[in-house]
Nucleic acid binder design. Sequence first.
DNA 1: CGTCAGGTTGACGCGGGTCAAAATGAGTGG
DNA 2: CCACTCATTTTGACCCGCGTCAACCTGACG
Lengths: 239, 239
Amino acid sequence: MIERHLARLRARHPLSDAEEEAVRGLVEETRVVGPRTTIIREGERLAHSTLLLDGLLCRYKDLRDGKRQITELNVPGDFADMHSFTLKTLDHSMATLTESVVGLAPHDRIRDAIERHPRLGRLYWFGTNLDAAIHREWEVSLGQRSATARAAALFCEMHLRLGLVGLAEPGGFALPITQNELGECLGLTPVHVNRILRQLREDGLVSFRSGRVEFGDLARLRTCADFSDDYLYLEPDDI
Amino acid sequence: MIERHLARLRARHPLSDAEEEAVRGLVEETRVVGPRTTIIREGERLAHSTLLLDGLLCRYKDLRDGKRQITELNVPGDFADMHSFTLKTLDHSMATLTESVVGLAPHDRIRDAIERHPRLGRLYWFGTNLDAAIHREWEVSLGQRSATARAAALFCEMHLRLGLVGLAEPGGFALPITQNELGECLGLTPVHVNRILRQLREDGLVSFRSGRVEFGDLARLRTCADFSDDYLYLEPDDI
DNA sequence: CGTCAGGTTGACGCGGGTCAAAATGAGTGG
DNA sequence: CCACTCATTTTGACCCGCGTCAACCTGACG
């Protein structure tokens, strides 16, 4: 199942055989985790990074008043917390949204692989910088976009990211999360999420129903979100 | 002026003499840039990273309707766009807020230094992961905090980050930006920024006037913001 | 003294939050 | 197959934080 991770790496940067071999050697152990389970708690000391092989994860931060903000979603193929390699402890928690399969990659294995293959280090560094770019785009959504545009932008993003690992079709994709969880991504209450989903559906832009996103008019949806995919760095490049 | 950068690195991780020497060799050229000047435009291809030696920078993204969201502020000592080392092109623009002095570090010098000193690579990787942590905290602010709490949280963050490089006093610090720019950080209109600043001032928590932040009651301000400094990773650690 | 950027204030409107209740639908056990 | 439970979705009524619009004030600078 590590193929998805390799596919995602290769989509942007070619991999040598030796690099591929090194990547395959990173995962020490795989685990199956049930849905809605916190797997890493804010502040916990970590000696491994988590590769998402299948399922859906989120990063989130809790607030005093019981609310939480989801700061990113992770799709299969993502090294969900490669940043713990240098941070040692995370400023946020991580939880599964659906049942997931994760691979554990000990930090010392990562360090060895990187020292032997410096370019691999740059590729994984790129990966964490991509996470930061996604965070920035979410900041733009949360700070400037209307509720409707925020939802539209999220659907556009997830469509492309899931597409990279073969988990999206041209007309839609599975996103098995609740409207409440969608609200925690978008900084909205579940009630208002429900209202804007209805509006997007009635306008024929996109429908979100029983865990699936189905596009009605992708072009108009992109316009509604003022969406540009630049921040996802889909184009291959030297590194 | 690179001392501030070295001080910031050393505050979290000890540096060997060889590493320090390598850092000193990164900057090829320094430039003075006037206030409110865009120095890197979204999408531009970059062959160097920018070290902020003095002044204040911001990263921002423009929207179709003319608004913009500032996604992070950079303080002296920050490698403002180390992420361009792996991304090659940025998903956002960068501009000075005040007159600034920047050092240009060519990517090939960075690559050499890192291959010779792998730990230095991890230190700079840590730096970009810290940026991502700051982005996440801003997502929390933008998504969940009230306007007042957002401003309070930003003042707390900048106090600590500027303090790390000796640019803050216990009771306040210089933050020479306009209320409009503050609004672009917080996702608020300048009018509303003005109102909440008045409220924070009248409540005796903090005052923001003619480019300076003066704390009235730091403890209550932290409570008001639900602020925790964990995400700034102030504690030294092995890497 | 004029100009102009930025700060300040007030009146008013709207997007999204809050509260409450009902509808739906996926289990689960009898 | 039905009855029951519980999470989730849906809808309506109402409210408030923040945006909008517009005017005026302040201070730096020529």
